[in-house]
Nucleic acid binder design. Structure first.
Lengths: 131, 131
DNA sequence: TCATAAAAAGATTAAAATATCTTTTTATCT
DNA sequence: AGATAAAAAGATATTTTAATCTTTTTATGA
C-alpha cells in the first residue's frame, strides 16, 4: 500500500499528537523505541517532514520533535504525498504507468470507484485525528 | 498498490484472454514485446501461475501459454493473492503488522471502508473480464 | 565560554525486489 | 532418431529500498 517511510511516519505522528507540545518535545530515540522503528531511519523521515514544515524540531539540549497547534491541522494526505511522491494518487490504483481516462488500463473502470473512496478517506484525516 | 509481478501478470493475462486458445498459444517473448515487460521476468511470473493451474502452458514446438475455457473464469483476486501472498488482504490497508479488529491501528476505522470496497471490486473480476 | 545533548547531514552498508543469464527438460516436426 | 523450439528451472546480477554509521551543526545549561 505505502512504503515504510509513510507507515513509520504515521506511527511517529501518533505519538507526537498524543504527547508532544512546544514545551514537551520527543526524542527520536524515544519515538523509535516505542514504535519499533529503526532510530536512524526514523530520524531521516522526521527530518524530511520537519524541513517541509509539517512537524517541528529543535536542535540542542531539550530539543526534539513536536507538533504546533497549526501542524495538528495538517492533512495526513500531505504527509503521504511528501513521502510517496506528489503524484502518488495521480496514478491508476494499480500503478499502471500510462493509465488515464483516455487510455484506461484493463481494470480501470472495475477498480476506479474503490480508488476514489480510498483517496477521499485520506483527505478527511488530519494529524490531530491520529491521537 | 501491488508489486510488479502482479501488474505484469495482469497485462499478460489481458493478451491471453484476447488472443490465446488451446489451439493458439502465445510465446513469452511475444507477450513481453507487446506489454513491454522484461521477457525473462515475465517468464518467471507466468511459470508460477501455470504451476498453480491459473493459466496453461506447453513446452516444445508450438508451445506457449494460453487460457482454457475454465481458466477464463478464474478470479483476478486469486492471481493477486498468489503473487502478493495469501495474506495480502488480511492486513490492514496501511500494511500495519499488528492491526486487527481488537487492536486497530490509528487509521483503521478511518480507512477500513475504503479497504472493503477495494477488495470487493477485485472479487468481482474474472480473467475473462480483462479482455 | 565550554561541555553536552540533541537534530541535521552525509556516507556507507544491508536487504529486498527486480531483472538477466545459463542450463535443462520436453514436445514436435522432419 | 535427430534437430529444433519452446517452457522450466536454477544461478547470477542489478537496482531500489531500507537501515546504519559517522560527522557536523546548533542550542542549552552549568
Amino acid at each position: 500500500m505505502f512504503t515504510k517511510p509513510s507507515k513509520y511516519a504515521i506511527k511517529a505522528i501518533c505519538l507526537l499528537v498524543d504527547r508532544s507540545s512546544e514545551t514537551h518535545k520527543l526524542l527520536v530515540k524515544d519515538i523509535a523505541r516505542e514504535t519499533g522503528v529503526p532510530s536512524p531511519f526514523l530520524s531521516k523521515i522526521l527530518q524530511t517532514l520537519s524541513r517541509r514544515g509539517f512537524i517541528s524540531s529543535h536542535k540542542g539540549r531539550h530539543g526534539g520533535f513536536y507538533l504546533s497547534a497549526d501542524q495538528r491541522e495538517v492533512l495526513l494526505l500531505d504527509i503521504i504525498l511528501e513521502l510517496e511522491g506528489k503524484d502518488h494518487f495521480q496514478h491508476c490504483i494499480m500503478n499502471f504507468e500510462n493509465c488515464n481516462l483516455d487510455h484506461p488500463c484493463p481494470v480501470h473502470e472495475l477498480i476506479a470507484p474503490a480508488k476514489v473512496a480510498f483517496r477521499k478517506s485520506l483527505e478527511g484525516i488530519r494529524l490531530k485525528d491520529l491521537g
